[in-house]
């Protein structure tokens, strides 16, 4: 309610209010409230099984919330199918990379835009409207150049290394002309060098395109180098929120990461995977 009545800037972006997601008897996410505005990078961090990917899936429509409300630019997304969220302007990447492996890199990136233009109507899925072909080609070129994958444009996505596949996924999301990107552990499977380069790339993307990013991460160095604001989840509940530096120095957060000094631990995520599998 408050989002509607206050200033426009407040209602822009993704609002999660009192989100609860249960799987059988397990409450994966418990009364989470957060906001990911357009034009800045919001981090969502937490240890394994904290409910990060579950929150993500609720935002992108891959699972349905048990309680609470998710709105984007004032549109209620809670019951909308996955394809409708893309229409409103939310794109996402996957922790377990979901590329079209038998298609070329260029085709993958182009589908970031074309899948959205095709929509749900049989007519738009069969016949492109006037001018769409050119728009797709232009967006594809730009996104591939931005991510530095133009050289492998003709290679099949299934034959690339994990680092390159992450870049293709990002390029596909950028080509989609979304206003908010949900990035699910984009640095998992990358080495430190690749991870740094990825962070730099994301920063330039936000600066150039003015889009918003909600990023789920494990790696604290990525969070501190990239995010404008961060939320920390633990056992499905909001543990802490604040500026990245405050997160890094918070005792609560340290404890959640098992008291370890090195918050840059880079472990594979074993989070509850449901629709993703």
């Amino acid at each position: 309610m408050t989002a509607r009545t206050t200033a426009r800037a407040e209602s822009a972006g993704l609002h999660i209010e009192n989100l609860v997601v249960r799987f059988g008897g397990v409450t994966a996410v418990n009364h989470l409230t957060m906001h990911a505005p357009i034009g800045s990078v919001t981090g969502l961090i937490g240890p394994n099984g904290a409910g990060k990917t579950t929150t993500f899936n609720a935002c992108s429509g891959a699972n349905s919330p048990s309680e609470g409300k998710i709105t984007f630019d004032g549109h209620d997304l809670s019951g909308a199918p996955a394809s409708a969220r893309a229409k409103f302007g939310i794109g996402r990447t996957f922790q377990r990379i979901e590329l079209y492996d038998s298609l070329t890199v260029a085709e993958n990136v182009a589908l970031g835009r074309e899948a959205r233009l095709a929509g749900v109507s049989p007519i738009t899925q069969l016949i492109p409207r006037r001018g769409e072909r050119a728009a797709i080609a232009k967006a594809t070129e730009e996104a591939m150049a931005q991510c530095g994958i133009t050289e492998v444009a003709k290679a099949r996505a299934g034959r690339l290394s994990t680092g390159q596949r992450r870049l293709v996924e990002l390029a596909r999301a950028l080509a989609g002309d979304f206003r908010l990107l949900l990035l699910d552990e984009p640095s998992s499977g990358l080495d430190a060098t690749e991870s740094d380069a990825f962070t730099t790339l994301l920063k330039s993307v936000v600066a150039e395109l003015g889009i918003g990013i909600l990023i789920v991460e494990h790696d604290m160095t990525v969070i501190s180098g990239l995010c404008d604001y961060a939320y920390v989840l633990d056992f499905g509940q909001l543990l802490f929120e604040g500026l990245p530096n405050d997160v890094l120095t918070s005792d609560l957060v340290r404890k959640a990461y098992l008291g370890t000094e090195d918050l840059g631990i880079h472990a594979p995520d074993d989070e509850i995977v449901e629709a993703n599998a």
Binding site: L99, Y100, L111
Partner: peptide
């Protein structure tokens, strides 16, 4: 193109806006 994409990843295709 949509069908070839559907063969590889229906999840990605629907997330990117295709019904």
């Amino acid at each position: 193109r949509l069908l070839r994409a559907l063969a590889d990843s229906p999840l990605a295709l629907s997330t990117y806006g295709t019904g």
